[in-house]
Amino acid sequence: MTESMEVEKDELKKRTLTAWEKVQIARDNDRAYTQDYINHIFDQFMKLHGDRLFRDDGSIVGGIASVDGQFVTVIGQQKGRNLKENEKRNFGMPYPEGYRKALRLMKQAEKFNRPIICFIDTPGAYCGMDAEERGQGEAIARNLYEMAGIKVPILSIVIGEGGSGGALALGVANEVWMLENATYSILSPEGFASILWKDSKRAGEAAECMKITAHELKELGIVEQVINEEEPITNINCQGVCDCLREKIIDFLKKYRGKTKEEIVEERYQRFRKY
């Protein structure tokens, strides 16, 4: 990070951020990623691989973790911090096999009665030829459909970029939380401006009108909780937010322990039925 960026970041702390500034923060290369949250929140984590159909997609990590003595399944999109890492992580843009791996792990969690915690951080599902050939649309659709029937509680936390259908494919949850400087959108502001105004340079303006920030989405009823960030969260300073999230996750697990499978599914259905 350059010095001028440091100064800019300090300035950002002092005032309310615009939606477009939050877009930049959510995309920042120093932003805390899924693996950072896993390391700081959970007591144990064992990574599991593969969709059993094609290959292991590095843009989605998943496995079994424990928190406060309870086992959970954790799944999230993982970005790389540099070009080399992104050869594996594909900038956090999953292929169909990534979504199929996520679904496999969710079904496994359901079978062994482990609650599911998803971390959402993706610019969107990957838009390449091979992704289309292997059914990107089908993979996302299948996740929405199957998640609707999963009989264990699901919690999704948007930690960075919540890019459209590629984010929602991990987001059909009983509760959805959002970090204060995360975004969740139908499309990137650049794409939105390009489609509606034929001018991707108006992305800043688009960001302001799209209602993509945590507080706006809480007002719209898209998320249940906004997780406060004292300063934009990075992989260095994330301990505080992770401690807070750990407590909240423990509360979430307690709250759902008393519910029957039918209640869990029905409550999730009603949550999305209201839109």
Binding site: A141, L144, Y145, E146, A148, G149, S164, G165, L168, G171, V172, Y184, S185, I186, L187, F192, I195, L196, M210, K211, I212, L217, L220, I222, R268, Y269, F272, R273, Y275
Partner: peptide, 26 residues
């Protein structure tokens, strides 16, 4: 695809319709 002018409310329709189909199938 999604109706851009309705933002995130449009995205939520993907989940809403899919879950209704899941119940129908069940």
């Amino acid at each position: 695809g999604a109706r851009m002018q309705e933002g995130m409310m449009s995205l939520m329709q993907m989940a809403k319709t899919s879950q209704a189909l899941k119940h129908h199938s069940d």
